[in-house]
Amino acid sequence: MADAPVRGPLVARDRLWHPPAYAPGYKTSVTRAPSRALVAAPSTLSEETGPAFGQDMLGELDNNLILNFTGQPAIGERIIMHGRVQDDQGRPVPGALLEIWQANAGGRYRHKKDGYAAPLDPNFGGCGRTVTNAEGRYEFLTIRPGAYPWPNGPNDWRPMHIHISVFGSGFGQRLITQMYFEGDPLIARCPIVNTIKDGSAIEQLVAPLDMSAAIPMDCLAYRFDITLRGRRQTFFENRPEGL
């Protein structure tokens, strides 16, 4: 990789910004939330290091969910999902592995446990992956996923969303989240969204429509920037070790 490796201790997570483990509005969390306090300490080499991901491991269609299952186009509203992965200082994070998964246009997942009434799309697998470039940028071509009902409260629906897994330069930065779509009235009603207490943290997960990246007569675009845990100091390979 051309980029100098990034080192240094990870900034502690703001646990009040993230959803708490126990969030009774999301019923499954009740029995799956640890009840004891986390044992907190500064990060170590075990969290500060991580495997390398390169563009060379990617197939040509890996970030194209419209075509990557059968080669025939999936049904749905064509969209670009794009953005930048950055650290807490706004510096780009190159070489980050991004993996997404989502329901099809009808709100149905290609998963043996999903028995929702909406049909499977024979040409939609529902996953894609990419690695951020030197500017920390990424792009997926996909279809807008449908909203779907789920067993929680008497009539809970998930807003349209794309699940996204992010792997930066350190194992301690590991993150899974979900991207929502600007203007979706189901966002405010969703018990999973509302596990997050701070309204401005929720806003961070709502991707705005980005007409500047839309392609006329082809597809709309949504912009989703991702911020990873920062590092307190950055060491470059050609600098001496230590402080």
Binding site: W17, W101, K113, H163, I176, T177, V193, Q204, T227
Partner: peptide, 14 residues
């Protein structure tokens, strides 16, 4: 600093 992107559950279909 920029706040970290908040986490959401991986859900049943990870």
């Amino acid at each position: 600093y920029l706040p970290e992107t908040p986490s959401q559950t991986a859900g049943p279909y990870v």
